[in-house]
Structure formats: structure tokens, C-alpha cells
Design a protein around this nucleic acid. Structure first.
Lengths: 219, 219
DNA sequence: GTCTATAGTTCGATAGAC
DNA sequence: GTCTATCGAACTATAGAC
């Protein structure tokens, strides 16, 4: 109802935009990119169809915003998990586990974020977020080089290897719903183990950490 | 006498279609997806613009065909390289090296095939070809399990890890032209080494092509 | 080949806030 | 009183059916 850019109005605008993007993310997490229609999202957000365009340029902008919100949450959760005190090996393992665990918890969303064909606008966002994960892993690897817990290696390359490995391995059958499979635990262990093997730790088995908790808590 | 598609006519049609797709691939390899315009491709193929649509449904079909031709060649080359006689470890290493080497030789094309935003049609093709690489690596890993040269592991997961690792690590700066960088050789070695580390070989160093302990090895 | 259904986008009218 | 966010119907384009 307000009309000018007072703080009150600004907050209201922001709240409406948030409702729009959240509605899009809900549809994305349930049914993928094709489920995001402007009219449907507007209905979910309890606004008129045309109002969507007051907040987002066009549908591509809506898709990109939905991607950024969902992917941004994931990256934040993994970043937080890796920010704990402790040796690089442990931080790396927890980052990998949290990444994989959340992807398996929300398979449909993971597929949408990691692999589902979605148009060039979303593709461009994907590249940005992959770079974010690269940087996160790179930082941990450099720490490992500094404290000699990881042998000399090309941290840029290994960081990219980790990002690619996780992304590719967690793209399962898109038809599969979010139902947890009994194989999930072993697949997760196999994936984390393979990723950790790729990192040249000074000691063969740096950690025996087994942490399956989810510090992020998806709403 | 009614018009029939004689083998001769069939061959000519095929040849024209091939010229169209090849022209698209040339533009792709030089300048990426944005460089593929129907008019430009038609000019390169020395046909009228409208003729393109007699061979391909629409632009998306042209893009998809260009992807399949370029990506199909790559997959074939890697498959052939991995089809040699020899232990699984050697076949895997040569497959990885050929994959990476070709990507570094043609950076622009590699970026286009592996990562460049290109629309949903091309995206869908990408998933298909990634599955092809997964199958290729999976076969080698299973061979290694059979002859005990590779320890017990989840071959599906490790195959996915290898595909993802290679794809992600070879997506360099898209601005960079195809000029070979002096770092290429060491980056390639680092990448192949990281991938091979992810595979639990029964013996630490299955081949002498890669040294994982001493970074001092000169290429 | 036409027709219809669906979905993205636009726009004039309305009403509420400064 | 002026300004602008909102509404929702109309417009347009495309895909699928007959």
C-alpha cells in the first residue's frame, strides 16, 4: 500500500520481493525449474501477476533470483560448517559431508541447482556459485599447505576437482523424489572418501571423523 | 515417376546437413555459442538461410546438433584412447590425459562444451554426454575391480567423481584464447594426478607416467 | 494447416501513502 | 494533491491437438 521509499516502504517492498522469491524457491525445490510460472508464483505469494514485474525485470530475473537464494543458502551453510576451528583435513571433510548430506536430503533441489537444464540465465549463476565453492575449498587447501598437513600440490586444480566431483556425483536420478534411500549413507561415505583421497594429505588417514548432523537445518 | 529419395539424393542431403553442422561447430570452437547465428552458419555452409530449416527443425536443434557432433568426437577420441590393451590403471590414465590434453588444446571449444551457458537444449545434451563419460570410466573401474588392481569401491560414485573433476578443472578463463600456456603441462599433470589419487589402486603408483610424491618431476 | 490452450508480458485504472 | 505500487484483464507468442 505504501508508495515512497521511506524505510517503512522499503521494508515492505523488500518483504514482497522476498515472498515472491521464496515462493519460486518452494516450487523449485518441489518440482524443478519448469514449475516456476509467473502466475503460479504470484498466486503463492498472494499478489497479482503483474506485480511480479514491479520487483523483477522478467522471468529470467525471477529464475536467477530463485537460484541465488537457494544456492546462496547452501553455500553459506557449507561455508559455516567449514569455518570451525580445527585442522584443514577436518574442516574439509565436514564441508564435503555437509554439502553432500544436504544434497541427498533435498535431491530435487540439488538436481535443480547442480544440473537441471534451465536456460542461460541460470547457467550463468551456476558458474558464479561454483567459483564460490572453489574459493572455499581453495582456502582450506592453502591452510593445509601452510601447516604442512597437506603435501605440495596445485590448490587451484584440486579445489576445482573437489567442486566438480561433488557436483557430478550428487546428480542422481532426477525422477527420484526426495525419499531417502538406504544406500545414501554408503554413497555419501564413498563420495567423501574419494574426494579426500584426491587431496594429498601428509598422513594417509587424517581423520576418522564421522559427522552426519546437519548444522543448517532446512526450513 | 514419383519423386523418391534415391541413395544419391540421400547422400547429397546428408552432405549438406553435415556442412551446416560443421560450420556451426567451427563457429562454436572459435567464439562460442553466441557466434552461432542461423544466417552466419548458412553463409559459411554456402547455402541460403532458409535452407537450414530444411535440415534442422529450429535453432535449438542446430545448437544441439553442433554440440552432439563436437562432444561426440571428443567422447569417441577418449573412448578409443581407453580401448587399448593394458591394465585398467594405464587405460584410465591415458583416458584422463587425452581428455585433458584435448581440452587444453582447444580451450574455447572445451569451455563451450563443458560450461558455457547455452540454453536448455544444449544443457540436456550435456547431461547425456556426461553420462557417456561416466559409463566409460565405470567400465574401466569395474575391470580394475575384476583383476584386483583396484581395491573395493563404489565404481558409480568414483566414475562420477572423475567426470566431474575433469569437467570442472578444465573450465578455465573463457576469455583466454586457445593459446597454450606454459603452465598447461603442470596443470594437466596435477589434474590427472588428483584424479588418479581418487581411485583406490591396490598399488600406490600403478604407472610411472605420474609422480604423486615428488613435485620436482620435470615434463 | 488451423485452432486452441497456455504462459510471458504489458498497460490503464485504482487506491493508498506522503 | 501528487505520486506510485498494485491489480487484473488484455495482448502476444508459442506449442500442441485435431
Amino acid at each position: 500500500m505504501p508508495y515512497r521509499r521511506t524505510t517503512q516502504v522499503q521494508a515492505r517492498l523488500q518483504a514482497t520481493r522476498d515472498r515472491i522469491v521464496d515462493a519460486a524457491v518452494r516450487r523449485l525445490a518441489t518440482s524443478g525449474w519448469a514449475a516456476i510460472s509467473v502466475a503460479g508464483v504470484a498466486r503463492d505469494a498472494q499478489i497479482a501477476t503483474g506485480t511480479v514485474y514491479r520487483h523483477l525485470e522478467d522471468k529470467d530475473a525471477l529464475l536467477a533470483a530463485a537460484f541465488r537464494r537457494a544456492a546462496g543458502r547452501e553455500l553459506q551453510v557449507v561455508t559455516d560448517a567449514a569455518s570451525t576451528e580445527g585442522p584443514p583435513a577436518a574442516r574439509l571433510e565436514v564441508a564435503l559431508r555437509v554439502f553432500a548430506d544436504r544434497a541427498l536430503q533435498g535431491r530435487r533441489l540439488a538436481y535443480a541447482l547442480l544440473a537441471e537444464p534451465a536456460g542461460a540465465a541460470v547457467e550463468a549463476e551456476r558458474l558464479t556459485y561454483r567459483a564460490g565453492y572453489r574459493a572455499l575449498f581453495h582456502d582450506i587447501l592453502v591452510d593445509g599447505l601452510a601447516d604442512r598437513s597437506i603435501q605440495d600440490h596445485d590448490a587451484e586444480v584440486v579445489a576445482a576437482v573437489l567442486v566438480g566431483a561433488m557436483s557430478e556425483a550428487l546428480v542422481g536420478d532426477p525422477v527420484t523424489s526426495d525419499d531417502a534411500s538406504p544406500d545414501d549413507a554408503s554413497r555419501l561415505d564413498a563420495l567423501v572418501a574419494a574426494c579426500l583421497r584426491a587431496v594429498p594429505f601428509a598422513t594417509p588417514h587424517p581423520t576418522t571423523l564421522v559427522s552426519t548432523d546437519d548444522p543448517g537445518g532446512s526450513a
